[in-house]
Amino acid sequence: MYTTMIAIDIVAFGQRCHDTHTQRRVRHELYERLSEAFAMTNLPWAACHREDRGDGVLIVMPAEVNATHCLDPLAHHLAVLLRGHNRFASDATRLRIRTAVHHGYVERDDHGVFSPATVHLFRLLEAPAFKKALQAAGTDLGVIVSDTLYTEAVQRGGNLVVPSAYKQLWINCKEVRRARAWLWLSPHHSDH
């Protein structure tokens, strides 16, 4: 099916969460904040296909979901929730998240989902340029959007995506060479 995919990774999970108790707590908080952000955005959390990645999650939206809702609306809601959580979190339990959003055809088998589109999604998520930009910004949330999804969302118009909130970023990661993507960063707050 042709759908929107979201890949999420907890920044520095292995470096900050050294024991299983802390890992369990941070993972619980991640899923709580995600389900809340989906509810705030009117996205169907329960209807999504989800694959846990240990320090993150792959979310495959139902085909009928408008991909545009997975950009600015979801990012803004998630940023607010992360800020609220992080205000009282320790360094070990602070949630900083990298998120990649892409769309395309997805196949499913007994082990999960796969396709060239899912490979591209994870190349975006793991791209060194994305990691470096988020680290330099020091924000709680960074979202990278594939060029095709961003272009389609902007061409549709409407007020759900604000193009000026995105910065062009060139990605080089494994077999993906010089691919254009679009970066959205949550505002930086100094109350952490």
Rank of each mutant, 00 (worst) to 15 (best):
M1Y: 04
Y2N: 12
Y2R: 12
T3G: 07
T4N: 03
T4I: 04
M5P: 08
D9P: 01
I10V: 07
A12W: 10
G14I: 08
T20L: 14
T20P: 13
T22N: 07
Q23L: 02
R25Q: 15
V26M: 09
E29C: 14
E29S: 15
E29A: 15
Y31V: 12
R33L: 09
L34H: 01
A37T: 00
A37H: 00
F38I: 01
A39K: 08
N42S: 11
P44C: 01
P44Q: 03
W45N: 06
A47S: 14
C48M: 07
R50W: 02
D52E: 13
D52S: 14
D55Y: 08
D55A: 03
I59Q: 09
V60S: 13
M61G: 04
P62N: 12
E64L: 10
E64S: 11
A67N: 12
T68H: 11
H69G: 13
D72Q: 15
L74K: 07
L74V: 10
L74I: 09
H76I: 10
H76L: 12
L78W: 00
A79D: 02
G84P: 03
F88P: 02
F88M: 10
F88R: 13
A89H: 06
D91S: 14
L95W: 05
L95F: 05
R96M: 08
I97Q: 11
H102I: 01
G104Q: 03
V106G: 00
D109G: 08
D110E: 14
H111C: 03
H111E: 11
H111A: 09
G112L: 06
V119G: 00
H120Q: 04
L121D: 07
L121R: 12
L124E: 01
L125M: 07
L125F: 05
A127T: 04
A129Y: 08
A129T: 15
F130S: 02
K131H: 13
L134Y: 06
Q135Y: 15
A136W: 07
A137F: 06
T139R: 01
D140P: 11
D140T: 11
L141E: 05
V145W: 01
T148V: 13
L149E: 05
T151Y: 06
A153I: 05
V154C: 11
Q155F: 02
G158Q: 07
N159T: 14
N159C: 10
L160V: 01
P163K: 06
S164M: 02
A165F: 07
Y166H: 00
Q168L: 10
L169V: 08
K174M: 12
K174D: 15
E175T: 15
R180T: 12
R180A: 07
H189L: 13
